[in-house]
Amino acid sequence: MTTVAPGSDVRRHELAEFLRSRRERIAPEQVGLVRGPRRRTPGLRREEVAHLSSVGVTWYTWLEQAREITVSAQVLDAVARALLLDASERAHLFALAGSADPTPHTLCPSVTPALRAMLDQLGPVPACVQNSRYDILAHNATYGRLFGDLAGKRPEDLNCMWLAFTDPEWRAAVVDLPATHRTMAAKFRAAMAEHLAEPAWKTLLARLEGASAEFREVWARHEVVGQGAKAKYIRNAHVGLLYLEHTNLWLGPASGPRLVAYVPLDEQTRERLERLERLEHLEKPAATTSAPLTPRS
């Protein structure tokens, strides 16, 4: 008589084998670790993956042993990042775990070809499309260089909250960083009230809390503020100081996606934005800069 293993057992074992195979292919140097003379394990050790994922060594060991344990979407997200999984591998990981990916790469219906064309036509005014979680869904050439080179960022890091608290280029461009941090955190908290149970929001919050002491400090204030226009200074690395008005054009309900534009408030700023736009086009003449970069709605 042949005994068929339950589907959950098969998936757990397949998940364990998949994790081992991904762990063993990564050289320590790829994740900033020293190989050392006595290393015999191909790739990373289990404890190294656990450390990089900020999870317990015992827990991760049980996961690779196909133990019957509960795995949250947030932990799977951290493991996927530690193992440098690409989009297909990440989708496979979440499918094997029977969990919904909190940051799926699905198209945002609000970012249409016509909207992307309009973003380009707004140049040299920097403009982008964001959702209420601050994910950057699309942008034009000038916005791509406003706070730093967005072309060099990983898709999962194209989020204004994440960049403002962790990215050196972005932080250097913000003239009043402490005030900006407080305002962004307060807006994020106000928007999150409608999304408290959603994995994507919880995952972003966990990443921010784990990566930034500054974020933990301002988040503990429990301040809230609504969206609105505001004049601000931005110190661009290529063209100098810019005086801009940040304004929102809502593409749906107030808690949904919005077009964000930075309108110049003086002639010097307008001229500098024109220089910035020319610089981007000269360096990337064939690029379609308004294509969606982190297409999550």
Rank of each mutant, 00 (worst) to 15 (best):
residue 110 S to C: 13
residue 79 V to L: 10
residue 39 R to M: 03
residue 111 V to G: 02
residue 100 A to F: 00
residue 152 G to M: 12
residue 70 T to F: 01
residue 98 G to P: 13
residue 126 P to L: 03
residue 146 L to V: 11
residue 77 D to Q: 11
residue 155 P to V: 04
residue 74 Q to E: 07
residue 137 L to N: 10
residue 119 L to F: 07
residue 44 L to V: 02
residue 85 L to E: 09
residue 79 V to C: 12
residue 45 R to E: 12
residue 135 D to W: 13
residue 58 T to P: 02
residue 66 A to V: 10
residue 119 L to V: 10
residue 48 E to N: 08
residue 134 Y to P: 10
residue 117 A to F: 05
residue 68 E to M: 03
residue 130 Q to M: 15
residue 83 L to A: 00
residue 75 V to R: 10
residue 50 A to R: 05
residue 120 D to E: 15
residue 80 A to E: 08
residue 72 S to N: 03
residue 154 R to N: 13
residue 54 S to V: 09
residue 157 D to R: 12
residue 72 S to E: 01
residue 67 R to T: 08
residue 76 L to V: 02
residue 130 Q to C: 14
residue 117 A to P: 10
residue 88 S to K: 13
residue 64 E to Y: 12
residue 158 L to N: 05
residue 58 T to S: 03
residue 147 F to V: 09
residue 149 D to Q: 10
residue 40 R to F: 05
residue 47 E to L: 06
residue 109 P to T: 05
residue 136 I to V: 15
residue 151 A to Q: 03
residue 154 R to E: 13
residue 75 V to C: 10
residue 65 Q to N: 07
residue 136 I to Y: 12
residue 133 R to K: 02
residue 120 D to V: 09
residue 88 S to D: 14
residue 126 P to M: 00
residue 154 R to W: 12
residue 106 T to G: 11
residue 100 A to Q: 04
residue 105 H to Q: 01
residue 118 M to K: 08
residue 70 T to M: 04
residue 104 P to R: 06
residue 97 A to N: 08
